[in-house]
Simulated scan of single mutants.
Amino acid sequence: MENILNKFSIKEGSKEAEIVKRTISECEANGIKGEEKLCITSLESMVDFTISKLGNNVEAVSTEVDKNSNGLQQYVIAKGVNKLGEKNKTIVCHKENYPYAVFYCHKTDSTEVYSVPLEGVDGNMVKTIAVCHTDTSEWNPKHLAFYVLKVQPGTVPICHILPQDHVVWVSN
């Protein structure tokens, strides 16, 4: 860890050092039951991982927010929610906090992906990607989602909208 922090001129004990340590820890940890994961640092590696798990017929999708919008807080779901790909045939790549590009990519047995159009109070439309985890029984019981939703692991599906800098690969 000391070598990594020195390489990026990050001071030990700083907030940045804690962020780097957390990312490395997440990348080195074993996946949960039914999860295949890899931390990736290049587009080529992301494509290689995706093709090795889903085959050659894949599409990358992500949330598209208009640069003039005020975030997603003033939007409601519009008509036209569409399921993307098949259950168990998706890979989600989350952008990690790190001094350079690192994505936590994973394929789980219980993930469904949807395209969810949102309409703002001003009529502005945003295309978001929602990921639904249909089985959370293997998740850490202290996961923020359980606290916010006041539910227990494995009791209900957990769905969330992905930020713009995350990528979902779906098998066609």
Rank of each mutant, 00 (worst) to 15 (best):
E44S: 12
S45Y: 03
S45K: 14
M46R: 11
V47M: 08
V47G: 01
V47H: 03
V47L: 10
D48K: 14
I51N: 09
I51P: 02
I51T: 14
S52G: 04
S52T: 08
S52N: 12
K53M: 09
L54R: 06
N56W: 00
N57P: 01
E59T: 11
A60F: 14
A60I: 13
A60L: 13
V61R: 05
V61T: 00
S62M: 04
T63W: 02
T63P: 02
V65K: 04
V65T: 05
V65D: 00
D66F: 00
D66N: 12
N68H: 03
N70L: 06
G71W: 00
Q73N: 07
Q73H: 02
Q73G: 01
Q73I: 02
Q74F: 05
Q74N: 14
Q74D: 14
Q74H: 07
Q74G: 09
Y75E: 11
Y75K: 13
A78G: 12
A78L: 04
A78F: 08
K79D: 15
K79R: 13
K79G: 12
G80D: 06
G80Q: 08
K83R: 14
K83E: 12
L84C: 08
G85K: 07
E86F: 05
K87P: 08
K87N: 13
K89R: 15
K89T: 05
T90P: 04
T90Y: 03
I91R: 05
C93E: 06
H94Y: 15
Y98Q: 03
Y98D: 01
Y98T: 02
P99G: 06
P99R: 07
V102D: 00
F103S: 06
Y104P: 01
Y104N: 10
C105Y: 03
C105E: 03
H106K: 10
H106Q: 08
H106L: 06
H106F: 09
K107M: 00
K107Y: 00
K107I: 00
T108V: 05
D109H: 10
D109R: 07
S110P: 06
E112D: 11
Y114W: 03
Y114S: 01
P117L: 12
G120V: 05
V121F: 13
G123R: 08
G123S: 08
N124M: 14
N124A: 11
M125I: 15
M125D: 06
V126A: 11
V126K: 11
K127R: 09
I129L: 07
V131D: 11
V131N: 10
V131P: 10
V131Q: 13
V131I: 15
C132I: 11
T134Y: 10
D135W: 12
D135A: 09
D135Y: 11
D135V: 10
T136D: 01
S137R: 15
S137T: 15
S137E: 14
W139K: 02
W139T: 02
W139I: 03
W139R: 02
N140I: 02
N140A: 06
N140Y: 06
N140P: 05
K142H: 12
H143N: 10
L144H: 13
L144C: 07
Y147A: 14
V148L: 15
V148G: 05
V148P: 04
Q152G: 05
G154I: 08
G154D: 08
G154A: 09
G154K: 03
T155E: 15
T155G: 03
T155R: 12
V156G: 03
P157W: 03
P157A: 04
C159F: 04
I161K: 07
L162V: 02
P163I: 05
P163R: 11
D165L: 07
H166R: 04
H166L: 01
V168G: 04
S171V: 02
